[in-house]
């Protein structure tokens, strides 16, 4: 019984428990730290630039003599590159997930997974180099008018980068579907593809949707590929054939240069990051909510 333990031992046990709990609280402290830094540095910014102007202005020229702060300009670049990336990552990721969970068995699966893991392990700065030096020249052969920096090549490479991520998360969801559903479909004479597409996929849809949403959050937060390959000029556009800056590009660009600490230019990166953080947080919470709802509904009946 615990009471028969020597006193010192018992004290040590509870001290250790507190220490471990402290480590777990570090996660909460990190989130609070992020929120505090972003809000703390953005507040002075929003005192000199109204939130309304921040959200509605159609120009982003914070370092000019006549500064304008329309975050929509940067968001348009983020949206365009992310849409291109998702147009690649969602269909390919879904197809691969279906293939891995419903068709590939045993040794085949074991040999396919490392390809995905290799791709997932490539640092994003290397993908950026790839987009600028390999993919853009290839695309320029098809469209000679394509500028050297463009959202298309950055988006395509970003899509390839996200494929393994979407595929492995969706595959987990597909695998969780009970075998009896597949067996029911086979008993009715379905082919494996019919069972996969008409029974397993709809049954796993919330898990798959959560994977898509996490893919979106990955895409909007991706920095190095766009910073290297998409150009750094802020431009209000949804045309992937143009160069444009994204929210993340702008932050890197300013942080890399020498903007004096405490200036309005320095604070813009925190305001931009706050917008990015809130956007990513929304998508992450949405994914979490979708998954939790699925778990509440319990087993598929």
């Amino acid at each position: 019984m615990a009471t028969s333990l020597p006193r010192r031992r018992r004290k040590m046990e509870s001290a250790i428990e507190w220490l471990l709990a402290g480590a777990a609280l570090a996660a909460i402290l990190t989130t609070l730290g992020i929120a505090a830094v972003l809000v703390g540095e953005s507040l002075p910014f929003f005192r000199s630039v109204s939130l309304w102007r921040f959200l509605t202005d159609t120009q982003w020229t914070p370092l000019f003599a006549d500064p304008r702060f329309g975050i929509g300009v940067l968001l348009s670049g983020t949206a365009t590159s992310s849409l291109v990336a998702l147009a690649v990552a969602i269909p390919c990721g879904t197809a691969l997930a279906l293939f891995l969970s419903e068709f590939a068995v045993g040794p085949l699966r074991e040999s396919v997974k490392p390809i995905l893991e290799l791709l997932a392990g490539v640092p994003t700065v290397v993908f950026g180099y790839f987009a600028l030096d390999v993919v853009t020249p290839l695309l320029q052969k098809a469209w000679p008018a394509l500028p050297g920096f463009n959202l298309l090549s950055a988006g395509l490479v970003m899509g390839v980068m996200i494929i393994p991520y979407v595929a492995s998360l969706s595959e987990d969801a597909l695998r969780a579907v009970p075998m009896s559903l597949r067996e029911g479909a086979y008993a009715l004479g379905a082919t494996r593809l019919q069972a996969a597409w008409q029974v397993v996929f709809p049954a796993a849809f919330s898990g798959v949707a959560a994977a898509y949403v996490l893919g979106v959050s990955r895409a909007i937060g991706e920095t190095m590929i766009v910073a290297i390959a998409a150009g750094q000029q802020p431009r209000l556009t949804l045309n992937p054939f143009e160069p444009a800056a994204t929210v993340t590009t702008y932050i890197v660009q300013v942080a890399k240069g020498d903007v004096p600490h405490g200036s309005l230019g320095y604070r813009t990166i925190f305001a931009a990051a706050l917008a990015l953080f809130l956007l990513a947080l929304t998508f992450n919470l949405a994914a979490d909510w979708i998954r939790r709802r699925q778990r509440l509904r319990g087993r598929i009946s």
């Binding site: 989130t31 972003l38 703390g40 540095e41 937060g221 932050i251 990015l276």
Partner: peptide, 24 residues
């Protein structure tokens, strides 16, 4: 709360951590 938080932190864009490092 800790669990949701950890799941969330995993999805925070890495550049946001950079600003945490810069500011803090």
């Amino acid at each position: 709360l800790i669990e949701v938080n950890i799941a969330n932190l995993a999805g925070v864009p890495s550049i946001v951590y950079g600003l945490l490092g810069l500011g803090l």
